[in-house]
Design a binder for these strands. Structure first.
Lengths: 185, 185
DNA sequence: CGCCCATATTTACCACCAGTACGAAAGGTC
DNA sequence: GACCTTTCGTACTGGTGGTAAATATGGGCG
C-alpha cells in the first residue's frame, strides 16, 4: 500500500531526473509501482500537479519566513521574499517548470493562481484600505505579482542572466517602487 | 494553392468556434483543406501559434497607438496602453487563450516572451539609463510586465470581475506607481 | 490442509492529438 | 495520347493521459 507522500516524493525524483517533460509512467516507475496505482492515489495529472505546487509553495513559504525579519522595512521584507522565492525555485528548478507546464487556459491554472494570490490579496487588501484605496483592486495586484514572478523566474532559469539578488532588486524596483517613480517620470 | 493568410484566418475562425482547445484538424477543416496542407503552409503547431501571437500583438499595437496621445503624461500613456491591451484581447478572447496554451517551459514560450518584451526593454532601458539605473535590469522589467499582464488578463477573462478601465487603474497603480508607494509604506 | 472470496495490482487496452508516409489524381509537356 | 511533375488526401505512426478487465495475493472458514 503506497500513499500520497511516497508518490509525491517519487514524482519529485522523477521530475528531477527526466525534467519537466516527465510522464506519468516515469513517475509511476520512480515510485516502483504501476500507473493505475498513481491514479488511484493522486486522482489525475492535474491533482498531482496541484499537490506538487503546494509542495513548492510550502517550501517557498518557509524560505520566506526564514528570510524576513521584523526589524526590516516593508520594502526590505518584500525584497527578501522575492529573493527567497527565486532561490527556492532555483533549487527545485524542474519541479517549478513541471508545475508551470499547465497551460494558463485551464481550470487548474486558475485554481493555482487564486490559491497563490490569496495571501497577497489579504496583505495588500489591508494596506490598500489603510491607504484609502478600494479593497477590490487587491485581486489584480495579486494576479499581477504572481504573473510577474512567474515569467521573470521562468526566463531567469532559462537565460541564467544575473544573480538572484540582482533580479530581486529589479523586481522590487518594479513592483514595490513602480516603474514610473523609479525612472522619475 | 492556399497560403498563410487563409490558413491564419481559418485558424482564427476555428478557434473562435471551438475555443482554445481547437485542434489542428479543426483548423484544417475551417480552411476547407486537410491537415498536411496546414503543416506544409505553417510548419507545425508552434509556428502557427507564433503566427497567431504576432497577429494578436499587431492588433494590440494598433489599438495602443490609437489610444495613446502625445499630450498625455507618461503615466496616462501607460494606462492607455494597458486598457488597449485588455480590450483587444477581450475581443479575441479565444485566440488569446489559444496562444497562452503554450506551456511556460517550452522554447516557443521563451521566444514569444522575449519578442513581446523587446519593445518594453528598449523603452525602459532608455528611461532607466536616464535615471542612472543599469540598463540591464530592463529585461527583468519587461518580463515582469509581460507576466503581470498575462496573468491578470487570463484571470480577468475567466472571472469577469470589473471593467477594463478599473483593471487598468489597478495595474497602473501596481506597475507604474508601485505597490509600496501607492499604499504609503 | 484446501477452498473461496475480497482486495490489491498489473497487464493490456482505448481515446486523442500532433505529425507524416505513401498513394492517387490533376495538370502540364513533348 | 503517353509520361512526368506537382499537389493533395487518406490513412497511418508515436506517444501520452487515462481506464477496464484479467490476475496475483492473502486471509478466513469448513
Amino acid at each position: 500500500m503506497v500513499g500520497r507522500p511516497q508518490v509525491l516524493e517519487a514524482a519529485v525524483r522523477a521530475i528531477d531526473l527526466h525534467g519537466p517533460e516527465a510522464t506519468m509512467d516515469d513517475i509511476a516507475a520512480a515510485a516502483h509501482v504501476t500507473k493505475p496505482i498513481v491514479y488511484r492515489t493522486m486522482g489525475d495529472k492535474a491533482a498531482l500537479t496541484e499537490a506538487l505546487s503546494e509542495w513548492l509553495v510550502s517550501r517557498i513559504g518557509t524560505a520566506t519566513v526564514a528570510a524576513m525579519h521584523a526589524e526590516q522595512t516593508p520594502r526590505q521584507q518584500f525584497h527578501a521574499a522575492v529573493t527567497a522565492y527565486l532561490t527556492t525555485i532555483a533549487e527545485h528548478r524542474n519541479v517549478f517548470l513541471f508545475v508551470n507546464t499547465v497551460g494558463p487556459s485551464t481550470e487548474l491554472f486558475h485554481r493555482l493562481v487564486d490559491q497563490s494570490a490569496a495571501g497577497l490579496v489579504a496583505l495588500f487588501g489591508d494596506l490598500r484600505t489603510r491607504a484609502g484605496l478600494p479593497r477590490s483592486g487587491a485581486a489584480t495586484w495579486g494576479y499581477g505579482i504572481i504573473g510577474a514572478m512567474q515569467v521573470v523566474a521562468t526566463m531567469w532559469l532559462h537565460h541564467a542572466y544575473g544573480e538572484a539578488g540582482e533580479i530581486a532588486d529589479d523586481i522590487t524596483r518594479l513592483l514595490w517602487d513602480g516603474a514610473g517613480t523609479t525612472t522619475g517620470t
